Simulated assay, not measured.
Amino acid sequence: MSKISINQLHMALSEANSILLTVHVHPDGDAIGSMLAFYEALLAQGKKVTMVVDDSIPEKFSFLSYVDCIKTVEQCQDLDPIDMLLVLDASTYERIGQVGALCSAPIFNIDHHISNTEFADGLYLKTDFAATGEIIADLCKKWNWPMTESMANALYMAIATDCGFFKFSNTTANTLEMAALCVAAGARPNQISETIEAVSAERLTLTKQVMQTIEFYKDSSVATIELNRDAMDILGDDTDGFVDIIRNVDTVDIAILLKAQNDSITRVSLRSKRTDVNAIASQFGGGGHVRASGCTINLPLPEAKMALIKVLP
């Protein structure tokens, strides 16, 4: 593996004619927005590009252009020869699921996670960027690649969702500059936020129930909130917003969202105001960012919660 410069990335993309483009499983706004925008940008450069994700795509992203071009792994079993497997917004090889088995092409990775395991043959890593969408916008600007209105909407969504609509500590001057670049190219912040943050009556009713699971620890500096199997069956992967309910409590430093994947596996999202939660997630084989990380614990939800509480500083 080798970390590569922006010029080396540009050269690699120039030499690749057929690109398989993917993101991590349980795709979020940054993953989907980055992929859709870069897909369109690469097509404009004359590349043959196939988007594939080893997971379902949340319905809330259906307003973006080219979502219907995203293929499943099953639809990509007989691909023509691939020159490059391009992975966006994934910090480990395992995070792309079964996509890696579709081809034997060199792997290139564009990412912003401090926990990146450097699995790719070529890694373009910008840990000081709030989102992979911010990286893609920056690349388009520096390479003078045109940004269409549909690209701008996708990238604005990618950037905004990964920095809490510019509320989180990962928001920098460059983050705002790239978001402004998207708006100048036609992105509509109001439509994007209204679409992404829309709440159904069913979800609001569920939220009332989920709030009953909130618990505080360590003099109320740590808070947990739980999504049991029934809640996850309703929500699928659309669990955005639940961790913010407890993160916004004035005394809370570490906010923990626990999601029951099944009776013996729990997925965890960690957010903080001061503590390095990447260091906590790494103890369970996870990672992400200093203020926002995640992991999967092979324990039922109650036991996973206690295991986490034990290792908290």
Rank of each mutant, 00 (worst) to 15 (best):
F166V: 04
K305F: 09
P27F: 08
G29I: 06
T205Q: 07
D162Y: 13
M11D: 15
D230E: 15
K48R: 11
R247Y: 08
P300D: 13
D240Q: 14
A179W: 01
E118F: 07
M147K: 04
D121R: 12
I214F: 00
C182T: 00
G286M: 00
D54G: 12
T132N: 00
L204P: 15
Q8R: 02
N262T: 02
R291L: 07
T50N: 10
A16M: 01
A44C: 02
M306A: 14
E226T: 13
S56E: 15
D78G: 10
D111K: 06
Q98A: 12
E118R: 10
L36W: 05
V290L: 06
H26L: 11
I110F: 05
Q209P: 15
D219N: 13
L227C: 11
E303G: 02
A90T: 05
R274I: 11
T132H: 01
Q212E: 03
A198D: 09
K259G: 04
L155T: 00
D28V: 06
A137L: 11
D80H: 03
L20I: 06
T205C: 08
L227R: 14
A130S: 05
V53N: 13
L42G: 13
H24I: 02
P189E: 10
T171G: 00
K60R: 09
E194G: 09
V210Y: 00
M147A: 09
Q283S: 06
S272D: 10
L257N: 07
D55C: 04
I135R: 02
N174F: 09
S18R: 07
E59P: 09
S62P: 15
I96K: 05
D128F: 06
S65W: 09
F165S: 06
S220K: 15
L79V: 06
A137P: 10
N170L: 00
S14P: 12
F242S: 07
A180N: 06
M151W: 01
M11L: 04
S14G: 05
K141I: 02
D80R: 15
A223G: 11
R188Y: 12
K126Q: 04
T92V: 04
A152H: 03
I136M: 13
K71T: 08
L88T: 00
M35E: 10
P81S: 06
K273C: 10
D237F: 10
F242W: 01
F166D: 05
S221A: 10
T175A: 03
D30I: 00
L257H: 04
A201C: 02
N7L: 08
R271C: 04
T117P: 14
W145A: 00
D54C: 03
Y217R: 14
C182R: 14
F129G: 01
M1C: 07
F165N: 14
S221V: 03
H289K: 04
S5W: 08
I110W: 09
S221D: 11
K126L: 01
L13P: 07
A158L: 03
